[in-house]
Amino acid sequence: MKLALPTKTVDGKAVVDSHFGHCEYFTVVCVDDATRTETSRVRVEAPEGCGCKSNVAELLAADGVTVMLAGNMGQGAVDRLAGVGIEVLRGCEGELDQIISDWLAGKVVDNAEICDHHDEDGHSCHHEHEAPGLKPLS
Rank of each mutant, 00 (worst) to 15 (best):
L104P: 06
L89D: 08
D33R: 07
G71T: 09
C92I: 01
L104C: 09
D110V: 00
P6G: 03
P136C: 02
G83V: 14
H129S: 15
D110W: 03
D102Q: 05
S101T: 11
V88K: 06
V109G: 05
D121T: 12
E95R: 09
G85R: 13
G64S: 03
D116Q: 07
V28M: 03
A34E: 15
G83H: 09
S40C: 10
L134K: 01
T37H: 06
C23Q: 05
C92F: 07
Q75M: 13
G76H: 05
E87H: 12
A77R: 08
A105C: 11
I100L: 11
D79K: 15
A62H: 04
G21L: 00
N72E: 09
T27R: 06
W103A: 03
V88S: 11
S101D: 11
V56C: 12
D121Q: 10
P47I: 05
D63H: 09
G12A: 06
L89K: 04
G74Y: 02
G94N: 09
N72F: 04
P132W: 12
A57G: 08
G76M: 03
F20T: 00
H118K: 10
L134V: 10
V29T: 12
A34G: 15
L137R: 14
G85L: 05
A57T: 04
S101W: 04
A62S: 10
K53P: 09
G71Q: 07
V16G: 02
R36N: 10
S40Q: 04
C50W: 04
K2N: 07
G76K: 15
V65Q: 01
V10D: 10
E48G: 15
E24R: 07
T7S: 03
N111E: 10
K53G: 08
V56R: 03
G133K: 15
L59T: 10
D97C: 12
V10T: 02
L137T: 14
K107A: 12
M1T: 13
D63A: 15
D63N: 14
T39P: 05
P132H: 13
C92G: 03
C115T: 06
T27G: 00
S18L: 05
S54I: 05
T66L: 03
H118I: 02
G21E: 00
A4D: 02
C92A: 13
E128L: 06
G85A: 07
D110Q: 12
V84H: 06
V65Y: 00
N55R: 13
A46M: 12
D32F: 00
G49H: 01
M68A: 13
G49Y: 00
D79S: 14
I99M: 05
P132D: 12
G12H: 04
T9F: 07
T9P: 14
Y25E: 08
D79E: 14
L5I: 15
A4R: 02
E128D: 07
L137V: 13
D79V: 08
M73N: 01
G91D: 06
H129N: 12
G12D: 06
E130R: 12
H123W: 08
L5M: 14
E58I: 10
C125W: 03
C92D: 01
G122P: 03
V28A: 02
L69F: 02
G76I: 00
H123G: 08
K107W: 10
E58T: 13
L96P: 09
G106D: 02
G51D: 01
L60I: 12
L96Q: 11
D110R: 14
V29D: 08
M73C: 10
M68Y: 10
P6H: 04
V15P: 02
L96F: 04
H127Y: 14
I100F: 01
A61H: 02
